[in-house]
Computed example of a mutant assay.
Amino acid sequence: MPAPPDPRFLLRGDMDGNVHSLLFWIEPHVEHLYAGDGRGTIHTWDLKTNRIKNQLSDGESPCFNLHRTNDSDLIVQRRHGIIDVYKASESNWISQLLPEKNAMLVPLDSSVVGILSLKTYNIESMLDPSKLSYNDKLGTIMAMKPLGINDLVLVAYEGGQLLLWDMKKNDVLSSLTVEQYPMTFDFDISLMQGILGSASDKLEIFKILPNHTLSHKSTILLEHVSGVSVLSVRPDKKLVTVGCWDGCIRLFSWKKLRPLAILREHNETIYDIVYSQREVEAYDTKCLMAATGKDGCISMWDIYN
């Protein structure tokens, strides 16, 4: 394995020791990275200066996920199902309660996924597994992802089940038994292939066949790893990044799953890894990667571009 690259920059500031979520916001005249921490504060990093431009705070509930809408609203998912919406007003942000695009997926009790309308701010429909024979074994929703095709959604459950849902029919099209406590997964619709990480030393590769059947493809064993916290397939589909509990970030080629490098800049659990969806002029790269975690530091990477 070749020597790993060095980070382009390390962002350190007045952030809580736990930075849970990241979001790139790249426009022709704006190059920002938003970081949500354990104190409930969202820090806006200006990538042209590598300094914090402003901070948003609404209570002390940690920011677990950040999303962006087509209307340039910033959606913050916090602990206990709290959702905040920040609307842009000139150079400021105005805090409102509630969410993104036309709808968003939210985990509910009893293994139910709620589909929250961002027009009415109501749960308009639900993916309810109560009719399944193994419903009582599903447990907490651990991760979910809309696939962007035919109203399909993948949901991973604590008990070790990955379900493929049809949102229109509120029906499970297929299920796949995976490791218990799946922590994260990502999916590539161009290959109809996904990768799943759990509280174990395994990465599980799976496919969705043309008949909508979930199928196990292969397993990768990770040395000296007790758990995986985040997975991200790069937008160009060339790399997959694996954030682990030991603070290491492992890089694999996505198509052949060949190990490429291990990044050791962090020394605590990795919580989030994100890629810019467009060129970042300040870093002179077409795809910038940012990673963060329990150590409260954000590492910026230009990897194999």
Rank of each mutant, 00 (worst) to 15 (best):
Y181M: 11
K256A: 09
M15R: 07
I205Q: 08
S190I: 01
W93N: 09
G59N: 07
N65K: 10
S253W: 09
F206G: 01
D6G: 04
K286C: 01
M104Y: 06
C297I: 12
I298M: 01
D58E: 14
P259W: 00
D272Q: 15
P107F: 06
S190Y: 00
S91W: 05
K202H: 12
K207Y: 05
V225T: 13
Y283F: 15
H29F: 04
E158D: 14
I42N: 13
V113N: 02
Y34D: 04
S133V: 04
F185L: 13
S226K: 12
H216P: 09
I141A: 03
D171F: 09
I123F: 09
Y271C: 05
N305T: 15
D14N: 03
P99Q: 03
P235D: 01
I149D: 12
T41I: 10
I52K: 03
S117E: 06
K168Q: 15
Q77C: 15
M289T: 02
D151F: 11
E265G: 10
M15Q: 13
D236Q: 14
N305M: 11
V172D: 05
H266A: 00
D166H: 11
D186C: 02
L257I: 00
L66E: 08
T177A: 10
K48D: 06
G59F: 06
L263H: 11
R51T: 05
R8A: 13
V155M: 00
D71F: 07
E124R: 07
M144V: 10
L22R: 03
N65Y: 07
S229K: 05
H29E: 12
A88P: 11
G227E: 09
Q193M: 13
L164M: 11
F24C: 00
Y271Q: 06
P28M: 08
G293R: 10
Y34W: 12
D272A: 08
K101F: 02
R278H: 08
K53I: 03
P182M: 08
E281L: 14
A261M: 02
K237Q: 10
S200I: 07
R79T: 04
D128H: 09
E27S: 03
I298Y: 02
